[in-house]
Design a protein around this nucleic acid. Structure first.
Lengths: 215, 215
DNA sequence: CCACACTCTGACCAACCGGTCAAGATTTTT
DNA sequence: AAAAATCTTGACCGGTTGGTCAGAGTGTGG
């Protein structure tokens, strides 16, 4: 049996290099913002010469765009739990759990996204106007259905979604402030669970979510 | 009666120039971030030659620091409503109103603050560790008292505060996203009122706030 | 009216930035 | 093993940035 060259084909190496660069870029963009980030610093974090970055990504903006698009993709897919849920307790509860987990595991991505939107979404405005609008309208319809079925109070679905985004992403975007207020130490596992529980408790009770009738 | 030289003394002029520059700086820092902002652009917005900025503020960082300190000051004073309130319905309700109004009237300041914290609070870390910690502990004590008095559910005051900050500031920091989801138009007066009402309704019900017994 | 201190500004500079490129190294194909 | 295609990199470049500075302008106190 001939030993396969452990799958280090050109394409694989290319993908790995791109991934390495994208990870470094996400970190640097999160820490310094687009304007404050430098290709040199990204290169240093990735452990590659700067010229190599420009071989894989022609410009700083192209690299940034790809980072943001990846984050946007995660952002959307992490919300599939919404549709399959029988009611608001399960659906919104699971959505909060999922988004809190993203804030915990990928705070850099959340920060880059926040920064992009705060600066007027210069590179992903088209996504906002198409994909995000569609996604939002779909979830609003789901929430409206729950309201019509009497499973929760008649809350404006739009503002409920904003509140879900705001509260969950806050733990990533303002993680530094939260850490400072936590005696300068990162939240422990128990504290993260407490945060999740608090958010879920307040919101689910706040919208008058009633558990599904079927046990 | 001698006509006073309409108060254009040196000190007044100095104050006016500084204010003009600070306002322009806040806008530019909000739109481009610290790294993306340029002294030249701030000067253009302020309608002054760049060298003049350096006369009043020695460095870009000094200017930025003063902008952030001003925002932090507003941030804190806008929350005095908290203490004088008899219970959570009035106190938290008024706090939400006040912070939503800030998000509406001064979104640039909110964005600069968010950006500063997201990047690790490089210039106001000392304020976070002292003033903000003190402020937060004070309000947590108030909330805890309300809980002990049976005026609301036993929610962790810390996470309640985070939720208040997150939801209200979201309308400023993510204003562009909200506007895009609102058919590309800014929120109308009625929509702002609806947003305030939704946030207050969900949170006040979510924490089980009970109106004050005294009418 | 004059001397003085404060304010303003065009011109300038060293440092740094994103991006280029030619030439060498490496891998795949023939 | 030679040719072709792909990848890697140090050196380099024009443009921009934050910041400086000498000197002109301007209000103020004596």
């Amino acid at each position: 049996m001939p030993v396969r060259p452990q799958s280090v084909s050109r394409k694989d190496r290319r993908r790995e290099s791109e991934k390495l660069i994208l990870q470094a870029a996400e970190k640097v963009f999160a820490e310094a913002g687009f304007g404050g980030a430098t290709m040199q610093l990204i290169a240093d974090v990735a452990g590659l010469p700067k010229a190599n970055l420009h071989y894989y990504f022609p410009t700083k903006e192209a690299l940034y765009r790809q980072v943001v698009e990846g984050i946007f993709h995660n952002w959307l897919t992490a919300a599939d739990v919404f549709d399959s849920a029988p009611g608001p307790v399960e659906g919104i509860g699971a959505y909060i759990d999922a988004k809190m987990e993203i804030s915990r595991r990928h705070p850099d991505g959340s920060k880059v996204w926040a920064s992009e939107v705060m600066h007027g979404a210069p590179v992903i405005q088209d996504y906002l106007e198409t994909t995000l609008v569609d996604w939002t309208e779909g979830r609003m319809a789901v929430i409206q259905r729950w309201i019509d079925e009497g499973r929760m109070d008649p809350i404006d679905p739009r503002h409920l979604l904003y509140m879900l985004w705001a509260t969950t992403q806050h733990y990533a975007d303002f993680g530094h402030q939260i850490e400072t207020l936590n005696a300068g130490t990162p939240l422990s596992d128990a504290q993260w669970e407490a945060a999740k529980a608090s958010v879920k408790a307040i919101i689910l009770k706040g919208i008058g979510a009633r558990p599904s009738p079927r046990s």
